[in-house]
Structures are given as structure tokens and as C-alpha cells.
Amino acid sequence: MSNAVLQLEDRLTRLSLMPAVGGSIANWVTKDTHQPLLRLSDEQALASGSPRRLACYPLAPWSNRIAEGGFECPDGWLALTANTDHDRCPIHGSAWQQAWHVEEHSSSHAHLSLTSSAPFAYRAEQFIELCEGQLILRMRVTHLDTKAAWHGLGLHPYLPRTAQTRLCASAQTVWKATDDKLPNSECALPQDWNFNHLKPLPDNLVDHAFTNWDGKCLITQADAGYQLACHVSGADYFLLFCPVGGDFFCFEPVSHPINAHHLPGKPGLRLLQQGQSTELQLSLHYQPLAEVEQAVQGKADV
């Protein structure tokens, strides 16, 4: 697999893509200080050929785990097998494990595509743009198979985590998971998982889907002097993954909860006929905290 890197930049930031490695983002950093805005991919990560070692990768045509060896479609059962050596369930779809094609590339924009036959025929596209410190990533998937199938989308960014990292993301409930990492009940948010206001990340393991999300998120990194203002369309859920003692966390905008193919009503999934599409868009806006504070002070002085 080629590890060729595609570069984008705007006035404030620089982004590197690795289309052949799952259509992944390798790094996104500030131009003046080289501050990583997503988890830094070092030389070993860049050489690994694994999207899981990089900064962000696409999830299609589903997010996270699917149990029971597949799922039911209108024309019958679609059988799936495990696609990694670390999980017994097929996870995160198939787009992240294939090489993407560069359709178009300019200094600040890239259009990547993937035509896949597994687990059914679909075409995935990513439109990636940098503009004044804002990363905009739009993903579209079009169903190509003659038989209808259920689709879901997501993005899997890894973000730096320190003792001063704070998260605000308003949700109403969470799908609690069993020891097999599959959800079994939707319940009210525990206090330490309620991020309706800026707060530190929990010390315990979190690997769950949060529901009824408004699509907005704020991540502050006070020790690094910046915040990321996030806005998402096409996703009513987010997956939060906080490994114990880790120097990163994952905030994944997704269209559906874990194992939605086997939950009542298949929440968030879309049944697509041939030629139909579904989309998700993520924007992450880099904002130096000094500028944010100046803007707030300016409003207070008016």
C-alpha cells in the first residue's frame, strides 16, 4: 500500500492526507507553531499503513460494531465476518480498509473517492477543504447495488488529550454497553458523562454512543492555547472513546449508535436503493484562545 501524502493548507493550518491508507487524515497542525490539532502521526505511524495509527479516517457503510455475523436486508441476510484481529465483530465498515482515489486536488481542497464491492456495491466520496483555520470534511455515500441495503456513516478523529482538555457536547441519553462492547439499554446520562457544559474527560473508560445530539461540540486545550469549535450535520449521535491513561481521545460524529442494525427500529440507519445517497459533514474550526478572549472582552465593552 502506498504511503504517499497529499498536502493542503490555508493561512493558519496545514493538513496532510493519505488517500491510499483508507482515505485518512494523517496530520492537521498550525503553521506558526506546528501545534497538532488532531493526534500527531509520527514517522512510525505514517509508515504503519494503518488508519488506526493516523489522525482521522472515514466510517462507511456503517460505524462501529455489528453483532450476530451480519444483518437483515429487504432481500435477505447479509453475512459479515470480522475485519480486524482485535475485535470479534466486523467494525467500522469497509471504506477505511481500502485505498481511495484522488479525483481533484488544489492547495486547499481535495476530492477523494472509493468504489467498493464489499460488503455490497457503493461509492464513497470525501470533499476536504481548509479555509482560515477551518477544516470542512463532507462525506457522501451512494448505493450502487441492485439490492437495497442499510447504510450508516461516521468519522473517526483522534484528538490530543491532556489534564486540561475540556469537552462540551450536548446529548440527552447514552447507550450503555455490556462487557462485549455492544449496547443493551438507552439511559439517562451519568453525571460524569454529562458534557452539556465544558468539563474534563472522565478518568474511567468510556466507549459509548451518546444520543439526541445537537451537532455542536467545543473542545478546549488550555495548555496549548486553542479551542476547536465543531459543527456536524447528518449525525444525531456521537461516539466518545476515552481509554484509561491515554494521551488521546476520540470524538466520533456518527449517524447511528453501535449495532444499530440489531436495535429496535434500526435508529439512524438509512435503507438506500440503487442510486440513492446519504451524507455527513464535519467542520472543525481552530480558534486561538487569546483571540476568543479578546472577542468576548470586546463584546463586554460595547
Rank of each mutant, 00 (worst) to 15 (best):
L130S: 12
G133E: 06
L135C: 06
L135F: 06
L137R: 01
L137A: 00
R138V: 03
R138I: 03
R138N: 10
R138Q: 12
M139V: 03
M139E: 12
M139F: 04
V141Y: 00
T142R: 15
W150L: 14
G152N: 11
L155C: 11
L155M: 15
L155D: 03
L155R: 02
P157G: 03
Y158S: 08
L159F: 14
R161V: 02
Q164M: 04
T165A: 08
L167Y: 08
C168G: 01
A169N: 03
T173F: 02
T173P: 00
V174F: 03
K176C: 01
A177T: 11
A177H: 09
K181G: 00
P183F: 07
P183Q: 05
N184H: 15
S185K: 14
E186T: 09
C187Y: 01
A188D: 15
L189G: 09
P190F: 09
D192N: 13
F195V: 00
N196D: 12
L198P: 02
K199E: 06
P200H: 12
L201Y: 10
L201T: 11
P202T: 12
P202S: 11
P202L: 12
L205I: 01
L205M: 12
L205C: 03
F210I: 02
W213S: 08
D214I: 08
I219D: 11
Q221L: 12
D223G: 02
A229P: 00
V232Y: 01
S233N: 12
S233I: 13
D236L: 09
Y237K: 00
Y237F: 13
Y237C: 13
L239K: 00
L239T: 01
L240P: 04
F241N: 14
G246I: 01
F251A: 03
F251S: 03
P253N: 11
P257N: 10
I258H: 07
A260S: 15
G265H: 04
G265F: 06
P267N: 06
P267Q: 06
R270G: 00
